[in-house]
C-alpha cells in the first residue's frame, strides 16, 4: 500500500488525531478555564502540524498568536463570566 511515503504519514496521522481530540475535549469540558487551556494545546498541535507541512512562517505565527495570546484572551474572558458552563 503506497500511502504518501514522502511525508512521515504516521507522525502526521498521530498529530491530526491529537488535534481532533483536543478540539472535542475543549468543547466538552464544563469548566471554561480548562476549556481555554485545552484550546491552547489544540493551537500548539496545529503549530507542530504546520511545521511538518513545511509552512514554517505560519507555524511561527500560530505558536505566538494561537498558543500564546489567544489563550490569554480566552482566560481573561473565562475569569469574568460564570466559570461553570452548562454544556
Amino acid at each position: 500500500m503506497e500511502v504518501n511515503s514522502w511525508v512521515l504519514w504516521q507522525f502526521d496521522v498521530l498529530i491530526l488525531l491529537m488535534v481532533v481530540v483536543c478540539a472535542v475535549v475543549a468543547l466538552q469540558l464544563k469548566d471554561l478555564v480548562s476549556s481555554a487551556i485545552t484550546f491552547g494545546a489544540y493551537s500548539f498541535f496545529m503549530c507542530i502540524l504546520w511545521t511538518e507541512m513545511l509552512a514554517v512562517d505560519v507555524a511561527f505565527t500560530e505558536a505566538a498568536v494561537g498558543a500564546g495570546v489567544s489563550t490569554i484572551l480566552f482566560l481573561g474572558t473565562a475569569l469574568h463570566v460564570k466559570r461553570r458552563a452548562k454544556d
Binding site: L27, S35, Y42, D87
Partner: peptide, 17 residues
C-alpha cells in the same frame, strides 16, 4: 448547538483553523 457563548467562540476558532 452549544449553549454557552464562549464555547461558540471556541467552535468558531476551530472552524477557522
Amino acid at each position: 448547538a452549544k449553549n454557552n457563548l464562549l464555547k461558540k467562540v471556541i467552535g468558531m476558532a476551530i472552524f477557522q483553523s
